[in-house]
Structure formats: C-alpha cells, structure tokens
C-alpha cells in the first residue's frame, strides 16, 4: 500500500499563525502542493503536501513546531459533477468512515486529486483498489 505522506502541524488559532508558518516555508523554498486546515476555537491542524515531507518536518521541528507525518490515500477524480461522489459511494457501501478529505489540483489536467483519510486506512485502500478507484502513485504528487 503506497500512501501519500502528508505533514500535519499543530497550530494555535491566533492571528498571524498560518501566515508565519507559510512564511517560514517560503524562506525554506518549500513549494506547497496541497493544503488544508482543520480548526477549533483555540487550535488547529495545518495539513500540507510538499515534495520532501521528511526534510520539511525536521526543518519545522528545529523551529519548535510540532509536526507529524501522516498518511492519506490520493485518488484521481473526474472534474465533473458527481466525480467525488463515485469514490465516496465505494466507501459508504463498505461502511468505511471518512475522517477528512481535501482536494489538490493538477496542472494542465481535467482531473483533480482528492486525499482521503479513513479510520481504517489499510482496509479502505484495499476496498478502493478492488473497486478500481484510480489511486495515484504518491511519487507523482510529490513531483507535481
């Protein structure tokens, strides 16, 4: 099972925190392929897709951030109404719970990639494979 490594960063829900974090990444010349933010009133999780997540994790930790590498399943979806639902139906039919998802755009393409985080990752991966969902090779996303 080839998962996509994503960077999850603990961030306080305070003015300027996302800006500061992205500013550091800019200084480090890190290009962000995908991004999503989950938040509560006080804190949140910034999730990033970057070319070299292991290295960026270390660089952020050196700057006192708490960062973790987590796994998501990248699936190609058709860029048209109902495209995402086809995938979600597979999960639903198989009683697989979705923790969260977000999309990344592909350059010069009619398709988009959706990143899925499931409660049961291995089982979900197998079910998606069996149902011919187009799982994307993570290497292709790191090198977008």
């Amino acid at each position: 099972m080839e998962y996509l490594k994503q960077l999850s960063i603990f961030i306080e829900n305070k003015e300027g925190r996302i800006y500061n974090t992205l500013h550091i990444l800019e200084d480090l010349k890190v290009n962000i392929r995908g991004l999503s933010m989950a938040d509560t009133a006080e804190f949140g999780i910034l999730r990033l897709i970057v070319a070299d997540p292991v290295k960026v994790k270390e660089q952020l930790e050196e700057r006192d951030y708490i960062a973790k590498l987590t796994e998501v399943i990248p699936v190609l979806i058709e860029d048209q109404p109902g495209g995402l639902n086809k995938i979600l139906k597979i999960l639903d039919d198989n009683n697989l719970n979705l923790e969260y998802l977000y999309a990344v755009a592909l350059k010069n393409s009619d398709n988009a990639i959706v990143l899925l985080r499931l409660e049961e990752m291995d089982k979900g991966y197998k079910v998606l494979k069996e149902n011919n969902a187009p799982i994307v090779d993570p290497e292709k996303i790191y090198s977008i």
């Binding site: 994503q6 999780i45 999730r47 708490i66």
Partner: peptide, 15 residues
C-alpha cells in the same frame, strides 16, 4: 504546551 506525544492528526483526538 502541546508536545509530539499528545499531538494527533485528528481534531477529535486533540479535543
């Protein structure tokens, strides 16, 4: 202060 041991990629677990 949060620490790596009590940080999860999951809002539910953080709460």
């Amino acid at each position: 202060e949060a620490s790596p041991d009590i940080f999860f990629d999951n809002i539910k677990e953080l709460v």
